[in-house]
Design a binder for these strands. Structure first.
Length: 156
DNA sequence: GCCAACGTTGGC
DNA sequence: GCCAACGTTGGC
């Protein structure tokens, strides 16, 4: 399987592209949705491209780019009863939840807004522009990636 | 296995 | 802050 592409949502209040710039690498913990987990656990490979998406803030949209640098391993925050994402169903011998590590590549000069994405007809099949789709980890088609990375919002 | 009730997501 | 849409839970 060649390189694949993903879109990963984060609320910048919790974790933003600027925090990733400082940290350089972070574990993508806290995903508690089975479909999103399956993408991370079963399909993400080192080198895959990631669009870092800011949700629940103005402006909503793609804020930067990252790359997968570590393939899935158990999300240990599920085992910590003090953690917001604690899940007693997940046990170390049989983890329910997994995460990957992502590394900062670059931030957009300005956010590529959801509104803008919705206005690009070649992106009309993208999951993120579909009504009611709230999956926090989504596959991105190579053709969609190529369009997005050429948008002027990336240039310095 | 159905499905109502509930909790969460996330755009607006 | 609102609330539509979704995913999960749990009684039956």
């Amino acid at each position: 399987m060649g390189k694949q592409y993903w879109l990963m949502k984060s609320e910048p209040n919790e974790y933003s592209i600027e925090m990733l710039r400082k940290d350089k690498v972070t574990c993508w913990d806290g995903v508690r949705n089975y479909q999103a987990r399956n993408f991370m656990r079963d399909h993400m490979r080192v080198g895959d491209g990631v669009l870092f998406y800011h949700s629940n803030i103005e402006p909503v949209g793609i804020a930067g780019m990252a790359v997968i640098v570590k393939e899935s391993y158990p999300d240990y925050t599920a085992w910590d009863s003090n953690d917001r994402h604690y899940d007693p169903k997940s046990i170390p011998a049989n983890p329910t939840w997994y995460m990957v590590d992502v590394e900062f590549v670059k931030a957009c000069r300005e956010v590529i807004t959801l509104r803008k994405l919705k206005g690009i007809s070649a992106l009309e099949k993208m999951m993120v522009v579909q009504k009611g789709v709230r999956l926090s980890v989504q596959p991105v088609a190579p053709a969609e990636w190529e369009i997005i990375v050429r948008l002027p919002e990336w240039s310095r």
